[in-house]
């Protein structure tokens, strides 16, 4: 069996075991209502984590996405308040802005040979600052189209609701999976993660691919911002602080190697769901502090980093043995 599937399998097993434990304690957790809420509550995180998966597979990191989500919310709210543009027009403007924002970070990373950490850290401050410039206060969104979107859902068997944004996240995950595993762009992303120098020697267009990776992350951060604004009906410049770290955690728990070159978009979805499940459990319990989410996620992260290191060692050993 391919050793690279192991982290994904481990993630899946952890998710199923965790769900079983929750079910044993609270049988109500195994209902489509809980599942529907799980998808809706984590829709924005799931979307942004798909973009982060590409970035991390390529060996990079994107710290700007949390700020971009906040910027997106404020931008939409302010535009809808101050102009008479239709939300769909505002959405397309926003997605264009965040995609270009991501692409220019990718360009700086490639052409100026700067570490992604530094460049996207600057991007993080920049996007957050732009959000403040637009509005310091929370701006509520009241638009009939928003109410329409919020009412849209598909009633699953068992009375669970698959909302518009929950469904959108699933679509993004499916599209991301196809993009990663079945296109030349996806293969180039894995190639760069395996070794940028070698990939370039083998004919991978480094500049174009790097820019596309961060543009994709920017686009999905923008989309996550739209989803978040539908979810909260407001734009607030102090929202989603640290979401980039949640996204990174979800990607790593989902079995993607932090050093790049290996990972699955589907794993990221499970990573997001594990984090959501922990939160749901805490809500069900009612007496636990929500800080337990962070503690458990921290422990999970450690476990996965150790698992990844162990895998790297065993594959290295197998090869020396002549495998």
């Amino acid at each position: 069996m391919n050793a690279r599937l192991l982290p994904l399998l481990a993630t899946l097993v952890i998710f199923l075991v965790a769900y079983a434990v929750c079910y044993a304690q609270y049988p109500a957790m195994l209902s489509t209502r809980v599942i529907g809420n799980l998808l809706t509550d984590n829709a924005f995180l799931g979307i942004v984590a798909v973009g982060m998966t590409f970035v991390i597979i390529s060996g990079g990191i994107d710290l700007s996405v949390g700020s971009v989500i906040a910027f997106a919310g404020v931008f939409i709210a302010v535009m809808l308040r101050d102009t008479s543009l239709h939300p769909l027009a505002v959405f397309s403007m926003l997605l264009l802005i965040t995609t270009l924002f991501g692409a220019s970070m990718g360009a700086i990373i490639h052409y100026l040979e700067m570490p992604p950490f530094i460049v996207t850290l600057a991007g993080m401050f920049l996007a957050r600052g732009m959000a403040y410039v637009l509005s310091i206060d929370a701006v509520p969104i009241t638009h009939e189209f928003y109410e329409y979107m919020q009412r849209l859902y598909w009633l699953m068997p068992g009375k669970g609701r698959l909302t518009l944004i929950g469904g959108l996240m699933l679509l993004v995950v499916i599209a991301g999976s196809i993009l990663a595993h079945r296109t030349r762009f996806g293969m180039n992303v894995y190639a760069i993660g395996g070794g940028a120098q070698t990939a370039a020697l083998m004919g991978v267009p480094l500049a174009r691919t790097t820019m596309a990776i961060y543009a994709l992350s920017g686009l999905l951060a923008g989309l996550a911002g739209i989803v978040f604004s539908i979810y909260t009906s407001a734009g607030y410049s102090l929202a989603t602080v640290g979401v980039e770290l949640d996204a990174i955690a979800a990607v790593v728990i989902g079995g993607t190697l932090l050093t790049g070159g290996s990972g699955f978009v589907a794993g990221t979805l499970i990573g997001v769901l594990i984090m959501g499940l922990i939160q749901t459990y805490i809500i069900f319990d009612g007496s636990l502090s929500s800080w337990w989410t962070k503690i458990l996620i921290g422990m999970l992260l450690f476990a996965f980093i150790v698992l990844q290191k162990g895998l790297v060692w065993t594959t290295a050993k197998r090869r020396i043995a002549g495998g």
């Binding site: 894995y190 190639a191 993660g193 395996g194 070159g261 290996s262």
Partner: peptide
């Protein structure tokens, strides 16, 4: 070896002209 260890053998052979 100037190939990518993380890709499959087939992907390494066809990278760029899959």
């Amino acid at each position: 070896v100037n190939l990518l260890p993380n890709l499959t053998v087939a992907e390494n052979l066809s990278l760029g002209h899959q």
